[in-house]
């Protein structure tokens, strides 16, 4: 892989049942590219949590995944409400998700902490009322 490969996905905010399709697609592509299983696992978990978050909190958005020789970078950009208190949002167990979301198996306040846990770098840029962009990197 000498050139950087880029994959882009539009995430539908209305359909919880389809959440995860983009992460599934990326996982398959990385497998076909021969990326190591540990890195694939990290990317799959982090991106899946991010994708679920986009559907739960932000009515969808765009995910761009770049694969280079040295790392896999995921940029998740939404036009949702923004995150008022990032430190609080990073605490395990803190969640603003609706009860309906909890009944679906998410919204336990583990999303952002899991994304950080499974990536080598994570950066959150958020503007209240305008949206959030999360950049995550997994080193190869």
């Amino acid at each position: 892989m000498s050139d950087e490969l880029i994959f882009t996905y539009q995430i539908d905010g209305d359909d919880f049942t389809r959440a995860g399709e983009a992460s599934s697609s990326v996982k398959n592509k990385l497998k076909m590219l021969g990326v190591g299983s540990d890195a694939i696992r990290k990317v799959a978990i982090a991106m899946y949590e991010g994708e679920i978050n986009m559907v739960i909190h932000a009515n969808g958005g765009t995910i761009t995944v770049s694969v280079s020789d040295t790392d896999i970078t995921m940029v998740l950009a939404d036009q949702g409400p923004g995150i008022p208190d990032i430190d609080k949002a990073m605490e395990e167990g803190y969640s603003t998700a609706r009860d309906e979301v909890r009944s679906l198996g998410f919204g336990a306040g583990m999303g952002l902490p899991n994304m950080k846990r499974f990536t080598d770098e994570m950066k959150i840029d958020t503007v209240i009322g305008q949206g959030t962009t999360i950049t995550m990197k997994v080193n190869l």
Partner: peptide, 13 residues
């Protein structure tokens, strides 16, 4: 739990 995200979660892992 019984919804499609259970299968998705299993897939990721």
């Amino acid at each position: 739990l019984c919804n499609p995200q259970v299968v998705r979660t299993a897939e990721m892992l």
